[in-house]
Nucleic acid binder design. Sequence first.
DNA 1: ACCTTATTGATAATATTTTTCATTAAGCTT
DNA 2: AAGCTTAATGAAAAATATTATCAATAAGGT
Lengths: 146, 146
Amino acid sequence: MSWQKVLSDKGYRVSGPRRLVMELLAESAQPMTPLEIYQVLSQSGRALGMVSVYRALELLAELGLVCVVYNPNGSSGYVAGSAGHHHHILCKRCHRTITFAGSEDLSDLIRRVEAETNFRVSDHLLQLYGICPKCQKISADPVEDN
Amino acid sequence: MSWQKVLSDKGYRVSGPRRLVMELLAESAQPMTPLEIYQVLSQSGRALGMVSVYRALELLAELGLVCVVYNPNGSSGYVAGSAGHHHHILCKRCHRTITFAGSEDLSDLIRRVEAETNFRVSDHLLQLYGICPKCQKISADPVEDN
DNA sequence: ACCTTATTGATAATATTTTTCATTAAGCTT
DNA sequence: AAGCTTAATGAAAAATATTATCAATAAGGT
């Protein structure tokens, strides 16, 4: 289902700022912060308010159309979200982020932890960090911003 | 190894603010934000500057003595960190957070994702969310702040 | 008890996020 | 296609959060 349809089915309008933010994130290989999104869009002529970026992200995240991802250093950013249960893997060097399908791989772990802790687990956050194929080729530049 | 020893072995001093922050987090069942830490400590007479809280957290996190955990809603906080590879499980109702040992449970998943994506995975972020034993008993209060 | 210097804390400077509210435009209804 | 209704925007201000500066303090060695 298209993101436009998700919005309108929920009674939200497909407005200019929402479209700009959504399309920019869909094109971007890297997670972006609200400020980065604002700057890129502003500079490319598409004027919109910083506030709208925040509001668009908030709504799109709530609807699952974008996701927050966390960098190992603690900073975070937004990426366009695909449907269904999935997780993200981030390149520590270039920050390229892609999605991988969630699976049952965690169920053993979750069962174990439930038994150990008596928590009842309903949800989880999983992200992998590593080096993407492109950066593996570009041998060893010391880009220390992981 | 005690956190005091970790600090001094690295050439850092075991100062008042660092002790206060570390001990508070060690006692707390819930993750705390810098502001919360500052407020609790200030109100209990132990005066220290907000700035020192930030600096202490930054250093303690760098040394692995405290960890950042993420709430499902996007907010984050600090918890005292145990040694070794571990993850956290958070109660969505009361925010109680405990640690569970990391294991090899993810290795199959990681291998699969490496094969699928050609990333080389070196690290990961994993947190579980659920309901803690205490909150399971307190049947169903609708505390909608997950 | 003294010295050296890492660390603190008050203040100021930045940066980030949220609120407010008059104006604009999305999308339904003719 | 023009008009209407109201969700959504954007500019500005307010509120929060974080970082930088630097003189004063205190941790830990001698």
